[in-house]
Design a protein around this nucleic acid. Structure first.
Lengths: 215, 215, 215, 215
DNA sequence: AATGAATGAGAGTTCATTCAT
DNA sequence: GATGAATGAACTCTCATTCAT
């Protein structure tokens, strides 16, 4: 994963402040609390007053740690995408087979989604807002780039049908994110079960393994 | 498409008002203008003042035709989802083969997305907002129900591998919507080209038709 | 006074809004009330809440008529400077003798200062704030330009000692504004009496007419 | 300069604190930095956070040395006015001729203005704010009182035309301060050149030394 | 049907000041 | 002496909505 630069570096510059352990803890509290509220209530409808009120602190505290409400969301997104990326990187570490890497990445994404449903909701919202969408795109781009490379390799070795690797990578991303929301979040299915079905769909589509051949 | 009831009937009650042709035109203007602004600027950041200002009318006009800003969005969504549904229904009309019906529905969805990118953006946003998400879910539910039925039929006739039809239907929906945004909206690819690749992915997954068998 | 263009046209664009007579009246009320408060309390210490509270109207009213608090001050300044300019222009109208024109302009300025002490205070404050100083400079520039021309003419006809006309014009401006504040505003002396002494000082300085010649 | 009492003793009581040399230096740094920021940015718009941030110290430092932001400005003003007064006193020391004393005081004021433009700006601002204006008035009063005495003496000896000495003193003050801002600060002219013209204007007005007598 | 005017709660943000460490 | 953290009132400004005309 060479060239993996920090995303969204230009916009929403992180507030650089020397923090004591107590300060760092406060900051984390704010992030955690805001993440839940943003996800459950929506970003715009959740006010700064609500956040600091919920934490029982003064308004100034918020602006001591974050330059703005936007910047807080940007930070949440950056952290979330980095976490997802890390989870996937760890899952595929050591695996050389491209198809297995894709499978492991899907499983990792679904497991991550199961554990971070609020972040998934926030990422989805962010991708609909012009100010935050680039952050999400950049975050996704890393995963897509990796998946694209695996597919390309599998295609060239003949183990995957001839298809545009980038297109296929996005198709996999689309399946995975939608399935996570629909089956893991809405219906509470276990990530691992959902992953089996997702991997099957991604590898075989509708037809492969069907009893009677297509007309 | 039996059982197709009007979605979201309870909430956001449509303002029933007898409108003159001139009045209907005004109303349509508002809907059209607001759709674009909501999609480009975001729903929350777009104010009613901006909408009426952009149309050069007074604020009263807005509230003459719509009970609230929320209700306007609800109406846009309802109309949009109905339009998509209609496009798909027309596309599959007369076709009896379940796999062909699915293919045609995908193609119709992509073509519709190409022509209504603002609505696609709005639908995506709406699904992240608790107040509007049910509307979207209900709208999607119709398409999913139909696709589920087709898949079930195809599975029972052995033409599709044994899989949970509803899961597969959602997988198809996930692929289609993500691909529409990524390739049609962001990159401006023609819907028909994208549709070919999408259908291939949905039917064959990664493996089918590969040269060398999987290890 | 050819070339007399509207000052400060670029910054602080006036909010163009069609106003009903009632609206115009409201707007004027705000201007009048704010002028007094700004002058007595200071611009920064006077809040918008104080203004609307004092008028017994809602906060929105302020922003219906003015884009911002800054813009309101800019408008007050523009109006004030235009009023002063007009008063001076009317005072010198028809007079051809350059020295008499200067005298009449001084008298007009002092009389105007007597009647608009709040505006004088505001102009002085504005000239200390980078955002508003250009407005004041531009306003003054008109008067200075005119005075400079009169002085130049008087110098060339030998009726005024050889001096840099622009410098002298500013010197006259400096005397007049300071004297207005010190004697008319602080001590409440009548403008006309003060004007006599001011004119005498400007024309004669300390020495002219002294009994014994300077050493 | 008998009767020269410390001005503004009642308000803004100076924080009496025994300071180490290091402490005194810190304090001076704050004064110097704040003076520039107050002058360039405005007093109200410049926050304490900005000042301590610019010096790279914590907020506590500020409040260790100054009771409040207002008190800091008061101190800056007091120091500035004392400095100006001292400069003038030194300039006229030993000179007995009243007209020469006035001339020397003007020259000293202009030279001081050239070297302390930020302070000049601050003094001007302070005189527009009710809380600080008395400080400035008191500071000016000293100079005016002295000038008034000189003028009175010159008038009684017949070397200056019969005029209200206090009025004339203020007229001189008005010319001098305005000219300093306009020609020294804005246009960067050398103080000594400007002083020549200022003294000429003050002594001769427009007319003295003109070629042809006034009509 | 439509307008301009008004509302006022509430938004995000700032800031002088205080305080525990 | 000095820090980072915290306070919370006050600030400017926005906005969905209502209403008299």
């Amino acid at each position: 994963m060479a060239g993996d630069t920090e995303v969204g570096a230009g916009r929403f510059p992180t507030m650089e402040r020397r923090l004591t352990p107590r300060g760092q803890q406060r900051r984390d509290e704010i992030v955690a609390f805001a993440t839940v509220r943003f996800a459950e209530n929506g970003f715009h409808p959740t006010s700064v007053a609500e956040i600091v009120g919920g934490l029982g602190v003064g308004k100034g505290v918020f602006y001591w740690y974050f330059a703005s409400k936007d910047e807080l969301l940007a930070e949440i997104l950056r952290t979330a995408l980095r976490s997802l990326r890390t989870a996937q990187a760890e899952a595929v570490a050591g695996e050389l087979d491209p198809l297995r890497r894709i499978e492991l990445a899907i499983r990792a994404a679904l497991r991550w989604s199961e554990q971070h449903r609020h972040l998934v909701t926030l990422i989805q919202f962010a991708s609909t807002d012009d100010r935050f969408a680039p952050l999400v795109s950049l975050g996704e781009a890393v995963a897509v780039r990796d998946a694209t490379a695996q597919v390309a390799e599998a295609v060239s070795s003949g183990r995957v049908r001839d298809a545009d690797p980038e297109f296929v990578a996005h198709a996999v991303l689309g399946v995975t994110t939608h399935i996570a929301r629909e089956f893991i979040h809405k219906r509470g299915r276990p990530a691992d079960d959902v992953a089996d079905a997702t991997v099957a769909f991604v590898l075989d589509g509708l037809l492969a393994g069907a009893i009677s051949p297509v007309g």
